[in-house]
Amino acid sequence: MSEVEKKPIDFMGFRKIASVVSIALVVAAIALLAVRGLNLGLDFTGGTSVELEYQQAPALDNVRQTLESAGYEQFVVQNFGSDTTVLVRMAESENDQLAAEVTAALSAGGNQLELVSSEFVGSQVGDELKEDSGLGMLIALAVVLIYVGMRFQFKFGIASVVPLAHDVIIVLGVFALFQWTFDLSVLAALLAVIGYSLNDTIVVADRIRENFRKMREGGSEHIINESIHQTISRTINTSGTTLVVLFALYFLGGEAINNFALALIIGVVVGTYSSIYVSANLLVALGVAREDLIVPPKEGLAGQEEEEEQPPEWLNRM
């Protein structure tokens, strides 16, 4: 079927440049994380909680605006118990001045209010979250390596795990570069990026496997190129619909989901790129060949698979 089509774009022609770009990006991201670090949000750092008693119920949005124009960056304003009591949580560390400053800033507009208390508050997530999540992430990568190694081939396993690490590191690097706030919602976004990127990588890998078994001509680079070409419109459509949602969230969603959307936008773009230029690229570099996927029948573990994988029988009956 490839004969009747126009000549596919030579995706793999850029593989050397892409390798350099990817490595440079990852190195830069790691350096940024080491030097600047992440700007952790209120969820992770804790800070100060200030309780204020107003004489008349204030409009919370005005309180937020006043605090913002007074130069505070990360804060949460909530009604507390009654509509005249306001609780402000902020990332600044606790000291006597801070509470007084906040009170002064808020009463500047002519509001009658009184400082009830101000106290240090700890982080919202325990240390075990960092440890468990880190460990969980490593185990997840190992399991993906093993599963894909079994279902496809070991080289595919490597080619699906490396892009995941690549994507996560780059997203974190961008957050470190711009010092955007990294909070729990961004952590969730990061996990979604892993899911998305993995999905994308496997779909491309699946087509590569299929073509290796089907196409009798051409070297591995040609076959991989052809596979990417065949899946490119699917890749663009899926990324497109996802990005449409994300841009809507980013531009209209307000500050509460800004960073969430931002992390995902970067993640989806990088994830799409990495399934072609990291995953497929690695397959070429690892020298994946037809023999890796077509094992003579009745031999070895991988030989259980037929030459072209058939969908299960129950699906054919559908």
């Binding site: 325990g126 969980g136 997840a140 399991v143 729990l184 952590l187 993995l198």
Partner: peptide, 18 residues
Amino acid sequence: ITTLLVAVILFAMGSGPV
């Protein structure tokens, strides 16, 4: 299925929001 595997491991290992 691959993505589901990752989700299951994150569930087993992670805490709270994860």
